[in-house]
Computed example of a mutant assay.
Amino acid sequence: MEKIKKFLREVFAEAKKTHWPNRSELLTSTSVVVLILAVMGVYFFLLDLFLSGSIRAILKALGVG
């Protein structure tokens, strides 16, 4: 039982050290994440388009597709 109490004391001590972002920091971080997701989504869409077109062209040239 003493180990559990020690563990909980340490958890609460660490929780007090936690820095929670204010509204401005939260909105900035969220905007960065959404922007990166959008850019990566477009990148992978274009990459998929290019690779599927290339594979389709190769297969057509080989007479498979």
Rank of each mutant, 00 (worst) to 15 (best):
Gly65Leu: 13
Leu62His: 01
Tyr43Pro: 03
Trp20His: 14
Arg56Thr: 11
Val39Ala: 04
Met1Phe: 14
Arg56Tyr: 08
Lys5Ala: 13
Tyr43Glu: 07
Thr28Ile: 12
Phe50Gln: 12
Arg56Cys: 05
Leu46Pro: 05
Val64Phe: 02
Phe7Gly: 04
Glu25Ser: 01
Leu49Asp: 13
Val42Cys: 02
Ala15Glu: 10
Leu46His: 07
Lys3Trp: 07
Val64Ser: 03
Val64Met: 00
Ala61Glu: 14
Leu37Thr: 06
Leu26Glu: 13
Phe7Pro: 06
Lys3Gln: 07
Ile58Asn: 03
Gly53Arg: 05
Ser24His: 15
Ala57Thr: 13
Val64Glu: 00
Leu59Lys: 02
Ala15Val: 11
Tyr43Ser: 05
Ala61Lys: 09
Gly53Lys: 15
Leu51His: 01
Tyr43Phe: 13
His19Lys: 10
Pro21Asp: 05
Ala13Ile: 00
Ile4Lys: 09
Leu35Gln: 10
Gly41Arg: 01
Phe12Cys: 06
Leu27Asp: 11
Val34Lys: 14
Lys60Phe: 01
Leu59Met: 12
Val39Glu: 05
Leu49Cys: 08
Ala15Tyr: 04
Ser29Tyr: 11
Leu62Val: 02
His19Phe: 10
Ala57Trp: 13
Ala38Ile: 05
Ser29Glu: 15
Gly65Phe: 09
Pro21Tyr: 01
Val34Glu: 15
Phe12Trp: 07
Phe12Met: 12
Glu25Gly: 02
Ser29Leu: 10
Ala15Thr: 09
Ala38Glu: 12
Thr30Met: 15
Leu35Arg: 09
Ser54Asn: 15
Glu2Arg: 15
Thr28Gln: 14
Arg23Ile: 07
Val11Ala: 08
Met1His: 03
Arg56Ile: 06
Glu2Trp: 12
Lys17Trp: 03
Gly65Gln: 15
Arg23Trp: 06
Arg9Ile: 08
Leu26Trp: 05
Leu47Thr: 06
Arg9Phe: 11
Leu51Cys: 08
Ile36Trp: 10
Leu49Tyr: 13
Ile4Asp: 05
Arg56Ser: 12
Lys5Pro: 01
Val39Trp: 02
Gly53His: 07
Asn22Phe: 01
Ser29Lys: 15
Leu46Trp: 10
Leu37Phe: 06
Val39Tyr: 04
Leu37Trp: 10
Leu46Phe: 10
Glu2Met: 08
Lys60His: 04
Leu59Asp: 07
Ile58Tyr: 01
Thr28Lys: 14
Ile55Arg: 06
Arg56Asp: 05
His19Ile: 06
Ser54Glu: 09
Leu27Gln: 08
Lys3Ala: 03
Gly53Cys: 15
Leu51Lys: 11
Leu35Trp: 08
Ala13His: 07
Ser24Phe: 08
Thr18Arg: 14
Val39Leu: 05
Leu59Ser: 00
Tyr43Thr: 02
Phe45Gln: 00
Lys16Ile: 13
Asn22Cys: 02
Leu8Asn: 15
Tyr43Gly: 01
Phe12Val: 06
Ile58Arg: 00
Val42Arg: 02
Gly53Val: 09
Glu2Ala: 09
Ser54Trp: 14
Val34Asp: 12
Ile55Gln: 09
Glu25Trp: 01
